[in-house]
Design a protein around this nucleic acid. Structure first.
Length: 862
RNA sequence: GCCCGGGUGGCGAAAUCGGCAGACGCAAAGGACUUAAAAUCCUUUUUCCGGCAACGGGAGUGCGGGUUCAAGUCCCGCCCCGGGCACCA
């Protein structure tokens, strides 16, 4: 009979001890974290807030990628807790979203049911991995007690505007007090309604994101997609562009992520320049980052949607312009910006006047100019802009050189900094100076001004979905207003079917009774996007069951307290896929709440770490279709949760991409077996275990103390820097060292269990319990709650050191010298070495480099 | 095209500040225990040359240069792999 792995003898009885300790922790609420003012709260301890990106509880259950980051934060949290911190380490569910809704459409089952079922499964799986979450703080974004506050925060945005003078959000009531009209106030709210172009897919009955549209058709199903204007809720994130960009500065985030966010926000400095329309009093304003090239503007381009297109188009060009605009209207942004595309556009027949030299230049429309950026119009300088160059070449438009490139430049179209030429009063000036000079010139004459533009767009916040937060908004006489706070949460209606309506009307509109709020008011029927719930969940964890407020003020101050740093959460771990959107949106909401005085720090997350992807055993991305998905449940069943945790950390650096290896799991499982047998023995093939007589109450040797303290140090620094793989290596060295010892000093072994505990909490608790029964001098209680051993430098100090001796950089010998020996003595010892003399014989010694306690390099003439 | 991340044994990797390259683990080979196997324990394992051997010598961190007494680590120029972005004036 062939043998399967599950029949193999277990290294140690993890299948018995893991459930035992999980039950113990649950029953004793070992990881319950009291808030200030709660019973058991110790205000003398410093705080540490350790956060995971909470998961979407999908129907597939946990993936081995989830436990990677979760184990890292778990180890970090346990270490902090053992070192005298109050640690906040919570978990919850980001549970609104499309999969549950689509399942509902197919089966008629309410999304709440599938969501609950999936959460049950996820929670059970996470508990089986022994994480030290305070489950009393569990939250769920679809819980009315949660989303009432998501809706409440939305109302704060709705009721606020950005005060230009202070750059901070203020209540719109201040504007009303200043006597601004209703329209003026509405135009300044941070949450506002606008008509925007969306991708509407009649076939699917929904609006699609740009990424979901390919070649003008829906990615799913291949139905045609139209661009159409739709009334949408928007959030004015652009008002915060400057702060979102600048305030990244003080955060301990990976540089790559910061750069990515800055690029996404895309701040660019330049000038707006007004071009008069030939033969009319009107003008077109363009944005340019290169006002110094104004003399080289040989034509102008408007976005096809630009409102002035009709005014500039000449009679003879009307048909061509109309045809082009129609063609463009049907295309998605994706198609319009498709790569390596040939540029398109048409001449409007109109002309503009270049303000610096009075030259008449033709006005074209082309889709390479976007209506949503800058002013939707550009001055084209084909000599110094690649896009303009390409367009001009294609349509035979003139190219006028106005910047001289530095010598040696061979580019056909030079876009860098140089010296202005053929440019009147700025000729001869280097680019930066030319920019300043011409901008000042334009400003003096009222023809332009210095401006800053951002790539960042306002956030389209409405979705035509069922399974999302309803807006706390009413419509009365064509005007929106807030649902009274006392009526929150606004619950979604019960529906018979969740099918799209076939029109841009959201599914909520089918609930007639629900929509009708009163005789003259109806409810908003859009719902919020999935991002909404995750924008503030880290705040709710602080005070998850507060009925009065989204988070209690005192608890918020304590857990988000940062000792002067901008961010409150001490460690935030998650995947790079959220590098931009989630982190940007959360920062935006946080800043608004900060401005309004609801939170105490300007930034949410101080230290951010991205865990790397775990690939399949074949080095490919894990996917069902490749059949290389590793199920964590199987690993736990075969090797235990401690082995899974330890292996995921031993695999390699947390932030690196790395492949799974089943053999590797066996390796760490064997290590845990070795640790087990360091303490326990079995006379009956592992059916029963008893503490080994080799474990004794004796003093450790100097060598053992050295290994122990080396291990304490490496594990400590490894945890702080999240280099768990090297910490584990060092623990393996410890185990190897003590396995060979006939008598094993209990003090050193007990200290080791403390070090292992954050990594492998179950086995370490179990062994410690057995140890404590025999050696009653050891403190009683759960290892998780006992203090971390103290590292003592003195045990690492040795009387003698081995010094490497090189001749011309090549290793030739080693000499052992007293640790406090002077350079001259060490040098003498090295030169006295026979092996060294063989290599220096008959050659002149040029110099001798001495690196104290490490190395000597004897340099000789060849 | 642009921007990140990465290239070190058969494999995953390690190497504070430039100072013994390959710790630790996997795999492989040999041995002990066993009737046998599994499990466990011990030994070897970058590569080439010489030697029965202990050992000795040379090369070696993607490639080519450079700085330095000394380079995986710093500088310049390339190559390859993985990920992301998409005409933002």
């Amino acid at each position: 009979m062939s043998e399967t792995t599950s029949e193999k003898r277990r290294q140690y009885p993890f299948d018995a001890i893991e459930p035992k300790w999980q039950r113990y922790w649950d029953e004793h609420k070992t990881y319950r974290t009291p808030n200030p003012g709660d019973e058991g709260f110790d205000p003398s301890k410093p705080k540490c807030y350790v956060l995971d990106m909470f998961p979407y509880p999908s129907g597939d259950g946990l993936h081995v990628g989830h436990p990677e980051g979760y184990t890292a934060t778990d180890i970090f949290s346990r270490h902090k807790r053992k070192n005298g911190y109050n640690v906040l380490h919570p978990m919850g569910w980001d549970a609104f979203g499309l999969p549950a809704e689509q399942y509902a459409i197919k089966t008629g089952q309410h999304p709440r049911l599938t969501t609950e079922r999936n959460i049950e499964r996820f929670r059970a799986q996470l508990k089986r991995l022994g994480f030290c979450y305070d489950w009393d703080r569990e939250i769920n974004t679809t819980d009315p007690d949660y989303f009432r506050w998501t809706q409440w925060i939305f109302l704060q945005l709705y009721n606020s505007y950005l005060d230009e003078n202070t750059g901070k959000a203020r209540p719109v009531s201040e504007l009303e007090a200043q006597g601004l009209s209703r329209d003026e106030v509405d135009a300044r709210r941070l949450a506002y309604v606008a008509e925007v172009q969306v991708n509407w897919c009649p076939g699917l009955g929904t609006v699609l994101a740009n990424e979901e549209v390919v070649d003008g058709k829906s990615e799913v199903g291949g139905f045609p997609v139209e661009r159409r204007p739709l009334r949408q809720w928007m959030l004015r994130i652009t008002a915060y562009a400057e702060r979102l960009s600048n305030e990244l500065e003080g955060l301990a985030w990976p540089e790559g992520i910061k750069r990515h966010q800055r690029e996404w926000i895309g701040r660019s400095e330049g000038a707006e320049v007004r071009f008069a329309l030939d033969g009319s009093g009107e003008s077109i304003t363009v944005f340019t980052t290169r006002p110094d090239t104004l003399f080289g503007a040989t034509y102008m381009v408007l976005a096809p949607e630009h409102p002035l297109v009709d005014r500039v188009t000449s009679q003879s060009r009307k048909d061509a312009v109309e045809a082009y605009r129609k063609e463009i209207a049907g295309k998605s942004d994706m198609d319009r910006t498709a790569l390596a595309k040939v540029k398109t556009g048409v001449d409007t027949g109109g002309f503009a006047v270049n303000p610096v030299n009075g030259g008449k230049i033709p006005i074209w429309i082309a889709d390479y100019v976007l209506i949503s950026y800058g002013t939707g119009a550009i001055m084209a300088v084909p000599a110094h802009d690649e896009r303009d160059f390409e367009f001009a070449t294609q349509f035979g438009l003139p190219i006028q050189l106005v910047v001289e490139a530095p010598p040696g430049n061979t580019e056909k179209c030079f876009t860098g900094d140089g010296v202005s030429i053929n440019s009147g009063f700025i000729s001869g000036l280097p680019t930066p100076e030319a920019k300043r000079r011409i901008t000042a010139w334009l400003e003096e004459r009222g023809l332009g001004r210095k401006t800053v533009n951002y790539k960042l767009r306002d956030w389209l916040f409405a979705r035509q979905r069922y399974w999302g937060e309803p807006f706390p908004i009413l419509w009365r006489d064509g005007r929106h207003e807030a649902v009274p706070e006392a009526e929150l949460p606004v619950m979604p209606p019960e529906l018979e079917d969740y099918l799209p309506t076939g029109t841009p009307e959201p599914p909520l509109s089918k609930a007639r009774e629900w929509v009708r709020y009163s005789d003259n008011a109806v409810r908003e029927t859009n719902t919020m996007p999935q991002w909404a719930g995750s924008c503030w969940y880290y705040l709710r964890f602080i005070d998850a069951s507060n009925k009065e407020r989204f988070v209690g003020a005192e608890a918020e101050r304590y857990w988000m307290g940062s000792g002067g740093a901008p961010g409150g959460v001490d460690l935030y771990v998650g995947g790079t896929e959220h590098a931009v959107l989630h982190l940007l949106y959360a920062r935006f909401w946080h800043k608004v709440l900060f401005d309004l005085g609801y939170v105490s720090t300007p930034e949410p997350f101080q230290r951010l770490v991205n865990q790397g992807l775990i690939l399949g055993e074949d080095g490919q991305k894990m996917s069902k279709s490749r059949g290389n998905v590793v199920n964590p449940d199987h690993v736990v069943r075969e090797y235990g949760a401690d082995s899974l945790r330890l292996f995921e950390m031993f695999l390699g650096p947390l932030e690196q991409v790395k492949p799974w290896s089943t053999r590797g799991v066996e390796g760490v499982n064997r290590f845990l077996g070795r640790v087990w047998r360091l303490f326990l023995e079995s006379s009956d093939e592992g059916a029963n275990w008893a503490l080994s007589p080799k474990v004794r109450d004796i003093a450790p040797s100097g060598r053992q103390l050295k290994v122990l303290h080396e291990t304490i140090r490496k594990v400590e620094t490894g945890i702080e820097s999240l280099s768990f793989n090297t910490a584990i290596s060092q623990m393996m060295i410890f185990a190897n060292e003590f396995t060979t010892a006939e008598a094993r000093p209990v003090s050193a072994l007990a200290a080791f269990l403390h070090l292992l505990n954050p990594f492998a909490p179950h086995i370490s608790e179990e062994i410690y319990e057995a140890l404590q029964r025999r050696f009653s001098a050891l403190p009683a209680g759960s290892l998780s709650e006992l203090p971390w051993p103290r590292f003592e430098e003195q045990y690492l100090v040795e009387d003698t050191v081995e010094v490497v001796v090189q001749v011309n950089g090549k290793l030739r010998d080693r000499v052992t010298v007293a640790a406090d020996a002077g350079d001259e003595m060490v040098k003498a010892a090295a030169l006295a070495s026979e092996r060294v003399r063989e290599h220096t014989a008959g050659r002149q010694i040029v110099k001798v480099v001495v690196v104290p306690k490490k190395l000597i390099n004897v340099v000789v003439k060849p």
